[in-house]
Design a protein around this nucleic acid. Sequence first.
DNA 1: CGCTGAGTTGACAAACGTCAAGCAATGTGG
DNA 2: CCACATTGCTTGACGTTTGTCAACTCAGCG
Lengths: 235, 235
Amino acid sequence: MSAVCADCAVRDASLCSSLGDDALRQLHRIGRRQRVARGETMLWAGSDSLVCATLLSGVLKLSAATSDGREQIVGLHFPSDFIGRLYADTIPFTVSALTDAELCVVPRDRFEAMLTTNGEMERLLLKRTFATLDATRARLLILSRNTAAEKVAGFVLSMAERARGISDFQALPGGPVTFELPLTRGQIADVLGLTIETVSRQLTKLRHAGVLALPGVRSVTIRDAAALRHCAGLD
Amino acid sequence: MSAVCADCAVRDASLCSSLGDDALRQLHRIGRRQRVARGETMLWAGSDSLVCATLLSGVLKLSAATSDGREQIVGLHFPSDFIGRLYADTIPFTVSALTDAELCVVPRDRFEAMLTTNGEMERLLLKRTFATLDATRARLLILSRNTAAEKVAGFVLSMAERARGISDFQALPGGPVTFELPLTRGQIADVLGLTIETVSRQLTKLRHAGVLALPGVRSVTIRDAAALRHCAGLD
DNA sequence: CGCTGAGTTGACAAACGTCAAGCAATGTGG
DNA sequence: CCACATTGCTTGACGTTTGTCAACTCAGCG
């Protein structure tokens, strides 16, 4: 039996936040907790769309591949994000775990039925989907028009913002910030549409320029946030 | 005063198809027809999100640009498509007309209010937004991992499918198909994340290979659909 | 102590962008 | 009716960016 919703880490950030007590109890009865290990694939592109989920902890990737094996990560999912494809028979993209992860899984048909009777939840999902669409379209610009240097600098910035939001580690204005990247070089390359070598070269270039320090292989210190923003092509 | 909804060319394909007679009359009262000339911009990125619309005829582009002027078309809108950004204060992307176009425009706040009382329409919009998101994510893979040859071949194929669906011109299986491109070379380049010269070169390469004929500057004849699909990296 | 996987670095090649010239179709004003 | 400008398109020469291939380092681990 899954833990109670009252204990849920993402209770107030997920779609469930729009539910009243009755609806929440109902959802709790049909949902179950599931753990996914780092590297494991949870949903395969092309498979039947039978379940959806809320991500409780960890980071998932959404990926597509060309017929000859070139891969592209088309989305990243963080805790409280909604996972799965409603109103479709098949899953369009593969969902895999970049870190160990925990989900609250619900059968798709049951979830769709809940949506029709919970207008507030449906509206929240609609709003989030619009926001995701905007973010995906913005990434279209980045992937096709930004240089490798701009992509890597922008990626580090976006991960820094996310890390700052999640951890309590606060950035002194202008002062150095350190955080861990939840992705390997290869995964960063798959997000940015680059190769692992190009990502590595751009990071060392930023280190030599004094913009970043790389104390560990997965940790990053931003030493000059303004310069980093400039490299990312912002302002 | 706008023409009556009964005459609407996209009556059965647009969001309005989910409305009953009463709701349709209500929407008709708050909507108005608007014409946009080829090249004209209808909504500017960053401006207030005050209206939304249904596209009645023509083709619109949704575009973003880097701070130094590199442009990327992040979406194309065809008749019956929903235009605008609900549930946000500002428009995220610029909307411009690639051809002369006609729209049915509604104030955003009124439209949002109608959505809350028309669950079926809201669900249809949610379904369409999911489909658009999937298509946009698929384009992420194409833009970052496909070669110029694959991009151009795939684009011609997708425009052929759309032209076939809209016109009555049916493809003989395997036989040649001719249709008009609604975009200039420069606009195709902005869609595919290439330059105008690369698009031009790839098209002439396909012509020399006997895959395409280019009878007019805007018209295309597919002479070997199987070869074109192969060039696009499909099958 | 060798093995493995992730990362770094270098040499080289290919793809694509940039710059430039020229052509064809269309429109405009004298 | 014609000179002329404008716009979209094509083609060529060349340079830059990024991918490819390969060697090497480093840390963790049995």
